[in-house]
């Protein structure tokens, strides 16, 4: 299995720590940013295979970041998992409409998340 590059965008260091650890353990190359400005800068670099993106970021919200990501041709096919602390159904629809592959409400089971990450990286788009 070739190493896949995963970008984690979340402003809560503790969850970034856990996710980094788990993804690395699953054999992926992990990189993380913890605020919107850094994430925007990162859009200029080479795209990863998958992004785990928190919706509520300081500076810019995850939806806006996703929209800008999808506006760049080289980022268009990157798999995106949205993480959110808000449970409203209309937000889920919003995220999926903007081109997210999966919408996960916090808190979540890490085991389930890793399963979904691997499925997304290995297979076709599930949505």
């Amino acid at each position: 299995m070739t190493a896949r590059r995963i970008l984690i965008v979340d402003d809560e260091p503790n969850i970034v720590l856990s996710l980094e650890f788990l993804m690395k353990k699953a054999g992926h190359v992990v990189e993380s940013v913890t605020d919107g400005a850094a994430a925007l800068d990162r859009l200029g670099g080479p795209p990863p295979d998958l992004v785990i993106l928190d919706v509520m970021l300081p500076g810019i919200d995850g939806f806006e970041l996703l929209r800008r990501m999808r506006a760049r041709p080289e980022w268009r096919d990157v798999r995106v998992i949205l993480l959110t602390a808000r449970g409203r159904a209309s937000e889920r629809e919003h995220g999926l409409a903007l081109g997210a592959d999966l919408y996960v409400t916090k808190p979540f089971s890490t085991r389930e998340l890793i399963r979904r990450v691997n499925a997304l990286l290995d297979g076709e788009r599930t949505r």
């Binding site: 809560e12 503790n14 969850i15 856990s18 996710l19 788990l22 993480l83 602390a85 808000r86 449970g87 409400t105 916090k106 808190p107 979540f108 089971s109 890490t110």
Partner: peptide
């Protein structure tokens, strides 16, 4: 939801 997600992870 945020802190609890971190705790659980």
């Amino acid at each position: 939801r945020g802190p609890l997600a971190s705790l659980r992870a």
